[in-house]
Amino acid sequence: MARTTYQDLLDAGVHFGHLTRKWDPKMSQYIFMERNGIHIIDLNKTLTKLEEASAAIKQIVKSGRKVLFVATKKQAKDIVAEQAKSVNMPFVTERWLGGMLTNFATVRKSIKKMSNIDKMTKDGTYDVLSKKEKLMIQRERIKLETLLGGISDLNRLPAALFLIDVKKEHIAVTEALKLNIPTFAMVDTNSDPSSIDFPIPANDDATKSISLITDIIIKAIQEGLDERKREKEDEAEKEAAAAKAKIDSGEAAKEEAAAPRRERVVTAATAEPAAETAAAETATAEAEAPSEAAADQPKSESAE
């Protein structure tokens, strides 16, 4: 099922490119025509590439990994931050710090520093500081939150990057290439798509265009999260069923092992009265035998 339609892309202005004099020749395969000095993007190819990107990003999320959203341009930052938060994905919308991926260990130290400041405010350490120290810590906390707040929960390198405007985010693209991290991006007619794994030819300046493309990617991510959740539930049910079957089989084995024992107990209980009866009969016979012999003896004497 198509995630969007040709008309939706048209209404959002996804087809509008840059001025012809600002184009990148590598984007020629995605350009439909030129009109009034502006390149028009081929929306058929946009639809195809968008489907490919959505399917790929869905599989990444389904495997339990994170996608980092990068959009530092003014018209995109608020849209991307809001959308990324809705699916609990990390994002960078203020400024891409050099080495954010290639020097991730240092970035993690800064994030840890931010969490330590939060602990200070909770355990009372912050209250005993002087007014000047409090002000300095507050300023540092705000700065760290602005730059790194969106990746505070990112404990390891992301599995993929989704970018708005490849030209503006070229440092992020370079770092992703060095670390072999897949990249998904909106690529306008003035950008180079060759460095992007999943380019989506689209207008990366209009808010409607950015909102539509980002929303489609977010829906694909949500689908991946839902499928992962269902798979986990199915696995849990299977494990519970297997555990129950194991318990049942164990009880059955115990019953089977106990059956011969019960039979032996019953046999022994039945055998004891029979043995007692046989012994009693033997004793009676033995008692009667001498008395009969005595009865026969006087008769023989009188006969004589």
Rank of each mutant, 00 (worst) to 15 (best):
D123G: 12
S63A: 15
D248S: 11
I117P: 06
E233R: 05
Q83M: 14
V266I: 11
P182I: 00
Q83H: 13
K109G: 05
I60C: 05
L157N: 06
K238I: 08
V173Q: 04
E223P: 01
I181T: 02
R35H: 13
Q75L: 13
I41G: 01
I57L: 10
E263L: 15
L144H: 03
S291A: 08
A53K: 01
P290N: 11
S249V: 11
Y6D: 00
D24K: 14
L19Y: 09
E276R: 13
L129I: 11
S300F: 11
S302N: 13
D205E: 10
K143N: 06
L225D: 04
V92N: 03
K62N: 05
P290A: 09
A76F: 15
A269Y: 06
E292D: 15
L19P: 02
S130V: 05
A53V: 02
D188L: 02
K122G: 02
K168I: 13
L43D: 01
R262A: 09
T282C: 08
I210P: 05
V187L: 06
A243Q: 13
G64V: 01
G149H: 02
A280R: 10
H170G: 08
T102L: 00
D11V: 12
P25R: 14
G124V: 05
A71G: 04
R3L: 10
A279Q: 11
I247H: 15
K143R: 10
D192P: 00
S195R: 12
K22D: 09
N180V: 03
I200S: 00
S300V: 13
N36G: 10
T270R: 10
A278E: 07
Y126Q: 10
M33H: 13
R228C: 06
I181E: 02
K244H: 10
R261A: 05
L97V: 13
V173R: 04
I151V: 14
P90D: 01
N180Y: 01
E34M: 10
V265K: 04
A303I: 05
E52L: 01
L148D: 00
D226Y: 15
H15T: 01
E94A: 09
E233D: 08
L129K: 12
T189F: 04
I79H: 00
E281D: 09
S195C: 11
R261E: 07
K178G: 04
L147I: 14
E255P: 11
F104N: 01
E286I: 05
S195G: 09
L163W: 04
A71D: 07
E263P: 12
M1W: 03
E251P: 05
E52R: 00
E94G: 06
S86K: 13
K58H: 14
K22W: 15
S249D: 13
T207M: 02
R264W: 15
R141Y: 07
I196N: 00
L212Q: 05
A289V: 05
T106A: 04
I137E: 03
D42A: 03
D226I: 14
L177F: 08
A253W: 06
A202K: 00
L50A: 03
L129N: 09
A2H: 07
K254V: 09
A280L: 10
A269S: 04
I196H: 01
S209D: 03
Q7I: 12
I196W: 00
Q29V: 15
D118V: 14
